[in-house]
């Protein structure tokens, strides 16, 4: 009951945080030195067209009124209409966000599957050539700019070896073949039992997800190593070893569960980072995701779209934090 109450208290901060996020983003959008009308009607528009657009968007009203009207519509689930796509922002987000989630999820799965064992291995073999090798490998992944990794990936695996397809979510010949049900191309292809489209969608995921995974994996591996070194120096590990337990048992049954708590936080934040931060990867790979949508909206001063996308990303961050909190409480008996 107490655990539930603590979780409810944490959850209650979500609306306040979201309100703050909306307010700050809204104000930034309104005070930036770009007239949003230019984005809508262009540089050449005549005055009557400019003024008509300003009136239509309610930009002639006081800032407080504009914000109140926005929040009122927001409460009804209406994020307004995007200037860039002419669609309701909710529809755009429903279209672009699944592409990002699909990419980020595959990336984090790959990153976890490789990063955690590598981190553990580096910690166990501390100071050995394995540890140094892992360090160099991770350093490269984390310090090389991601666009460079993406381009090298394209050059090697797509252009030279021909192992993976190029940019986009699917081949031109298969574009639009799968009915859009969930927005996740792999799931939609599965639902439609279109195996060729499924294979194609998975193939298109490999390279961008691999690049993102390498970047995230490097971070996860380094953090795992640090946590693991800390755990391995604990008295309970020395005791376990003294009791004659096998190395594997000491590592995976005694030391690892102790770092799981901290790892959950790392993974949650890394995943959240992937959801909002895959902009560069999406740009290089022509991946129609939320990051690219947000960037283009920002460059076009399409403020409804910027606000909507920011809100969704903020919400994702908050939810992942809440989930991490919940998992943290479940995994660590000391906070129960």
């Amino acid at each position: 009951m107490s655990r539930l109450r603590t979780f409810a208290a944490a959850a209650s901060s979500v609306p306040i945080t979201l309100f703050g996020l909306v307010l700050v983003t809204f104000l930034i959008g309104r005070v930036m030195p770009i007239d949003p009308i230019i984005a809508i009607v262009g540089d050449h528009a005549q005055n009557d067209v400019v003024e008509a657009a300003r009136l239509q968007l309610g930009l002639d009203r006081p800032l407080a009124v504009q914000f109140w009207l926005y929040v009122k519509l927001l409460m009804q689930g209406d994020l307004g209409r995007s200037v860039m796509t002419s669609n309701p922002v909710t529809r755009d987000i429903a279209q672009y966000f699944p592409a990002t989630i699909e990419l980020a999820t595959v990336a984090i799965l790959i990153a976890v599957a490789i990063g955690i064992p590598l981190g553990v291995l580096a910690a166990v073999r501390r100071g050995s050539w394995v540890d140094h090798g892992v360090r160099v490998f991770c350093l490269a992944g984390h310090s090389i700019p991601i666009f460079l990794l993406a381009l090298i990936g394209l050059l090697v695996f797509y252009a030279t070896l021909g192992w993976t397809p190029g940019t986009g979510r699917s081949d031109v010949g298969l574009e639009g073949m799968v009915p859009d049900v969930t927005g996740f191309l792999t799931i939609d292809a599965l639902l439609a039992r279109d195996w060729e489209s499924l294979r194609d969608a998975c193939a298109h995921l490999v390279l961008p997800a691999g690049v993102l995974a390498y970047f995230s994996m490097a971070y996860i591996a380094r953090m795992t190593r640090a946590f693991m070194l800390d755990a391995l120096s604990g008295e309970f590990v020395i005791t376990a070893r003294a009791k004659g337990l096998s190395a594997a048992r000491v590592i995976w049954r005694h030391a690892f569960p102790n770092i799981a708590v901290r790892l959950v936080t790392v993974l949650a934040l890394t995943y959240a980072g992937l959801l909002e931060g895959a902009v560069v990867t999406e740009t290089v790979f022509g991946w129609p995701g939320l990051g690219q949508y947000l960037t283009i909206s920002l460059l076009n001063a399409d403020m409804n779209a910027v606000l909507g996308a920011t809100l969704v990303i903020g919400l994702s961050y908050l939810l992942l934090n809440l989930l991490a909190d919940a998992a943290y409480r479940l995994l660590d008996p000391r906070v129960r």
Binding site: L151, L154, Y158, G166
Partner: peptide, 19 residues
Amino acid sequence: TIRHIADPSAQLLMLQKGD
């Protein structure tokens, strides 16, 4: 079909690969 490829280098690779 006109595909949005923002990065010129990715466009060049697509040309080279026949995509």
